[in-house]
Amino acid sequence: MSDTPLQADRDKAFAFLKAQARWRWPEIALWAFAFASILLMPSRALLINEIAILALFALSLDLILGYAGIVSLGHGAFFGVGAYTAGLLAKAGAGAAPLSDPTLGLLAAGATAAMIGYATSFLVLRGNDLTKLMVTLGIALIFQELANKFSDITGGADGLQGVTPAKVLGLFDFDIYGKTAAFYSVTVLFLLFCAARVIVHSPFGISLRAIKGNALRARAIGVPVDARLRAIYTLAAAYAGVAGALLAQTTAQVSLDVLEFHRSADTLLIVVLGGVGTLYGAVVGAAAFKMMYDFISSYTQQYWQFWLGLILVVLVLFVRGGIMGLIARLTGQEERA
């Protein structure tokens, strides 16, 4: 074999792999728009803030669902844990740094959720899909019951009052219009998204996709499957914790609602709506979900749930791959399920 065609193939393979992780202009446009929207539509800052938080939470679910194939009905537990951690910390500091510092709150919430995620990952990664569903749901319910029981700490059904985070980075005060909140949440989302983007395109990320695709073969190659899954489960828990912390800090309250089942269900819907295993699906799905919610509930607040259910059913039956899948098909790109 001559050397030249081999070298050409090597270069081709190299370029092919490099192209996978390259930033494309629609991505850059999306993020530019996300930041610009706060300035362009200051009256919608609160909505943008909510979307960013939902998107981060959905992103964390996509990491385990889309990349590692773990179906969870109880991801809301980590969101709730993060929200209470940040809320209690902000309350303890009474609005002054260092304890009420938002960045500290995020880190503490992420770390707490990660610890619980790591501890519970040993339980979750056993058994089949049904067992996983039940164990995740069971763990979430246990946390809900705990929050309910220890109402002297969590504020019970009334919620945690007096959550007053300090200025962001000691510079920006949370305003009532939500402008700071929106910038803050979108920035955190962007940073964590970039990190997730690096991770899914890394050797670690590809090993997760390999495990999802064929765990038997992955083991035969020498992949410590359980350790990898525990790692991503822990990371996803941390992400969810940070999302919960953002909600607590930007809305200045935490109620038992953060641990409700519908949060886990909504988030599943967002991921499926946006497109599982795409990362951007979480962001696009969150925006679509929130706008749909606002649109439908402007007509019928009470029966929103019906339309939500209908959307789920239609999505599963007719829209495979969610919005991102649709975009990929429309632009003629090959689908990477």
């Binding site: 179906v71 599943l268 259910g309 789920l312």
Partner: peptide
């Protein structure tokens, strides 16, 4: 299983809203 879960949660929500 993910799709089955989504689909049947969807049906559940519709049934609940209808009953309501």
């Amino acid at each position: 299983h993910l799709e089955q879960v989504m689909f049947t949660i969807g049906l559940t929500f519709m049934a609940m809203a209808t009953a309501d």
